[in-house]
Amino acid sequence: MRSGEGTAFCAPGDEGCSGSVAFGCENVVKHYGEVRAVDGVSFEAHRGEIFGIIGPNGAGKTTLVECIEGLRTHDSGSIGVLGLDPQRQTRLVRERTGVQFQTSALPQRMKVGEALDLFAACYEQPADWRDLLARLGLENKTGSYVETLSGGQRQRVFIALALVNDPDLVFLDELTTGLDPQARLAIWDVIRDIRDGGTTVVLTTHLMEEAERLCDRVAIVDHGRIVALGTVPELIAAAEVEGNMSFAVDGSPPLDRLRALPGVSYVEHLEGRVVVHGNSARFAQEVMGVLAAVDERVHDLRSEQPSLEDVFLELTGRQMREGAPA
């Protein structure tokens, strides 16, 4: 699915928005001087989904999300968040949304409980923050200074701060970057719980595995535009990326018959191992059909499916990008 296709726009005050749409963008543009950081973006996120935004550094992800959050003003186009205008109804939007920043900190020498209590007081209808800390496994850390916590614990404090108003919509930026695998898995469980509780989650991430495992739908952003949007299987199916099947064989492999299969793009033969690249609905069955008919012994058969990372690289290119603002 490409951007702009069939997106029903969620305008401020639009009755339909209070239904299934958490936020919508239509033709949003944001310039920094000559650079179009966000270049005509239209899409919407559904209520109760984990919506992923991925893209290379400098693709415009953060700027786009900050426009939706109302932390930055866009130049043209419109944005509706929970049926509100984030530029004119900023405080109302903040009452009902939560934000976890990639680069954020609390003032030094503040205890976890003090921070939650203080931020809860910023909202008209705060959640019970003690309950929230317990859900995040931080109930014993109320009296600890934030700066003394481990990376995973600190990240959970910032998630708690983003949820302290029991938001309808929460934005999480680079949630698990720099965390160890245990902490990462634990935080993913937390995010699924949040979603299952009815909160819409917008997740900006660099980690393909995170997007693949966690997100109900993913938008790939590049050069300020959405270049693809859909569920991960949809994105993989729509992109022209290949999987492969590989096997070892004693004797001479049936290379010509494999190359002749529909959907096979090329076949490699290296040191007794054959790798068949291709992409079709019956690709695996076709390859196995050929193998079943040969006399030689075939072993160590493996299949690799295309991943979100393959789609991402296919759509955004493989060249290194540095120096551009995130």
Partner: peptide, 14 residues
């Protein structure tokens, strides 16, 4: 406090 993002954290609240 501005550099570490502490002020920003407050700005995202009402």
């Amino acid at each position: 406090q501005r550099e570490t993002g502490a002020l920003r954290r407050f700005r995202a609240t009402p």
